[in-house]
Amino acid sequence: MKIIVSGRGYPEKRNIIVNEKHTYLDFKYKNIWLYLNKIRNKATKANKTFVFYPVSFLMPDDAQVIHLFNEVACTDKRWVSTFETELPRVLPVPGVPKLANPALRKQLRLIAAPQCVAIVAISEATRQIQLRLLNAFPEEAPLIISKLHKLHPPQPVLYQGQRPEQESRLIFTFAGNEFYRKGGAEVVLAFSELASEGIVSARDVQVNIVGDLRNRYNFAHGRYQDEDYFYQHIETLIRGNALFSHTASLPNHALIDLFKRTHAGLLPTWQDTYGFSVLEMQACGCPVISTNVRALPEINPSEAGWMIECPLNDMFELTINSAEDKASLRRFIVSQLKSTIQDILANREALLSRSKAALTRIQQVHDPVRFKEQLNAIYALA
């Protein structure tokens, strides 16, 4: 089968370009909106439009379907789109209420049209957010809901080995290029406090931190970003404590090798649409401590990991409306991390049972063979 895609980035590789039996034709640079977006942004600073509008005479006749990520298509060709929050993706316009944005209704009509055969939410949280959006558009909703599917990304098992039960030193790993958004600071604060309280030391705990400390902007914090002294404090703690081993980045194969040696992963994230690193850790038999934003409760259930239950808004995300909100949530996340880490240190059997359960859920829920079958069934609708 020949499938047209609109890029070969990480989302496409994780959710679309997954079947070696198919041929994927990259039309990223044959999308008229790629160039229109650049012209409009330069001329008027207009928002980016997430529409795939291919040059018609370049479209091969033998391509069976177009499969996009976070985009809608304006074409006579049959198309499918996988999405992580809402579809269509329409950026906010100052002074215009979200539901009154004419671009939103215009693009919803593209989804309601017969050329769109399916839209695929990557999680139940995403599906619920989409349904909430459609409630505001009763004319288009019935046509679109009939096309709405849910399909969690595939993940192969990466390691079947078991961590030694009597190993004295436990290894924890945090991995996130956007260090502060993913909760890296809270990891450092939690372990530093436990060390100061004499509960952990470099003799019994190693904390690997993979993340770029220069990535300071935290999308979840909005107007209430941290001050320079906070970032400097976190960096001082990392440098000054033998618990921590920090590297700015690792190639994926090296990161997977690190997960295979890790007893428990760390993702106390402030904002995530999915949490792909959780899948990779679980696929290495490494259970994860995470927050409960967006899809994380679905992919990190209590039998396979540990959940920090934060208060969420109707988008399944954290709400930060003040510096006090941020400080209160940070204190809560740090305290929950500390409590969970202590439980892990005290109960190695629970750690091992979660390791096994993490592998089992990867095999059962994210099996690549089953994912291909489900995706092919969606393509058959075209």
Rank of each mutant, 00 (worst) to 15 (best):
E235D: 12
E235P: 00
E235R: 14
E235V: 05
L237Q: 14
L237V: 13
R239I: 05
R239Y: 14
R239M: 13
G240V: 13
G240M: 14
N241V: 10
N241F: 06
L243Y: 12
F244E: 06
F244K: 12
F244G: 09
S245A: 13
H246S: 08
H246I: 09
H246Y: 11
T247Q: 15
T247D: 10
T247L: 12
L250M: 11
L250C: 06
P251V: 03
N252A: 04
H253V: 07
A254E: 15
I256P: 09
L258T: 10
L258G: 03
F259Q: 00
F259P: 09
F259C: 01
F259G: 01
K260M: 12
K260H: 02
K260E: 05
T262M: 06
H263N: 14
G265K: 04
L266V: 03
L266G: 04
L267G: 01
L267I: 04
L267T: 04
P268N: 11
T269V: 08
T269D: 01
W270R: 03
D272L: 00
T273I: 08
Y274P: 03
Y274I: 04
G275A: 02
F276T: 10
S277K: 09
V278W: 02
V278G: 06
V278P: 04
L279Q: 15
L279M: 15
L279K: 10
E280G: 05
E280Q: 15
M281S: 09
Q282P: 00
Q282K: 12
C284N: 13
C284V: 11
C284T: 13
C286N: 07
C286Y: 14
P287V: 06
P287H: 07
V288F: 09
I289P: 07
S290Y: 01
N292L: 08
V293N: 04
V293Y: 04
V293A: 00
V293C: 03
R294H: 15
A295I: 08
A295G: 09
A295N: 04
L296S: 05
L296P: 05
L296K: 02
P297W: 03
P297S: 01
E298R: 11
N300C: 12
N300G: 10
P301T: 13
P301S: 09
P301D: 09
P301K: 08
P301C: 10
E303L: 07
E303V: 11
A304M: 04
M307P: 01
I308S: 03
E309I: 05
E309P: 05
P311L: 00
L312C: 08
N313G: 02
